[in-house]
Design a protein around this nucleic acid. Structure first.
Length: 104
DNA sequence: CCCGTGACATCGG
DNA sequence: TCCGATGCCACGG
């Protein structure tokens, strides 16, 4: 039984623990499509599971905050992450410490 | 139904 | 080191 890539990505996103962040590429890779990072962003963009899916825990490969269809956008996203304990370096996330190791 | 676009990531020059 | 182009999936018009 094959779940749509979308479903997988949402599942993975929900698995990200509080205080950690994952990159779109990371989710895409775990979902089985290492090059579908763009698609992952597309899933969050439509974001049908808005509050159900912690899309705010998903950042760009550089730790830069992008998009966000809720609240004020990036500003809200950044605030939420900081509140959860994610370290910020300027306007980016400290992937060195807050990057989700994945499902190891 | 078909085309275009989008919250990315990676490689090559 | 920086810029440009490509690949993937789904959704909207």
């Amino acid at each position: 039984m094959k779940k749509s890539l979308r479903e997988k990505v949402y599942e993975l996103t929900k698995l990200v623990p509080q205080g950690k962040v994952a990159t779109y590429g990371q989710l895409a890779k775990l979902a089985g499509k290492p090059k579908a990072a763009r698609a992952v962003g597309g899933f969050m963009r439509t974001n049908p599971d808005a509050p159900r899916t912690p899309c705010h825990r998903v950042v760009a490969h550089d730790g830069s905050l992008t998009g966000y269809s809720a609240g004020k956008g990036i500003s809200t996203k950044r605030k939420m992450l900081e509140k959860e304990g994610v370290l910020f370096i300027g306007n980016k996330v400290d992937l060195k410490k807050s990057l989700w190791p994945g499902i190891v």
